[in-house]
Amino acid sequence: MLKASLALLKRDIGLSWSRGGGPILAVGFYLTLMAMIPLSLGPETQVLARVAPGLTWLSLALASLLSLERLFERDYEDGLFDILRGGKLPLEAIALIKCLAQWIGTGLILALLTPMVMIILGAPVEAAGLSLVAAVLGSLSFALIGGVGASLSLGSRKGGVLIALLVLPFYVPPVIFGAGLMQAYLTGAPITQALGLLGAYSLFALALCPIATGAALRSALN
């Protein structure tokens, strides 16, 4: 089972790079969106520093949506699930592995860029470490929740918009906790509460989303 899991993880991470450059597209989108913020709000550093954490988290959530449509769709069309169900892994484990591959291939790269983007917008350099931790946790929950949306919209044409509508409401808590965490840090308030809630939400997603995604996959495949 471990060998099968690793084989699937390796395949999906490899594919995220060759599949029309999913991570590169998401990174490009993220950086372009961030570059537009000073252009739309004006260059005053005080204004930018105040809105930087919130807008960074909003952009991170939107960029995480981009490649979700392809998460299961391609393999569904190719008939790969006939092989995947012929192995020992249950659909729940397959869902978890594919979401983790999506996270490693896209979310983690966006998370690594987050401190840089925040600093460019005017957040203090000392906040870099904390913003990285928060973005890693947040992007994990984005990928797992995104998997639920992607599996629910499987087989429907134009699934991309449907996924966004299904998933965005559940992206709200990490955005609130993540942006709130940075605000708290910048104003000198205690950060443990927001960080704890963000971590709890990611663990919650890790525990429940694979079960929901597996069930949605099973219903789409039958």
Partner: peptide
């Protein structure tokens, strides 16, 4: 083994990669 009409081959991957994956995944 079930072999249907769809061959489950990803167009972006090489034959040896796909065969190795099928082999590792199915044991």
């Amino acid at each position: 083994h079930y072999l249907g009409h769809a061959e489950a081959l990803n167009p972006a991957r090489r034959v040896d990669q796909e065969l190795q994956f099928h082999c590792d995944y199915l044991g």
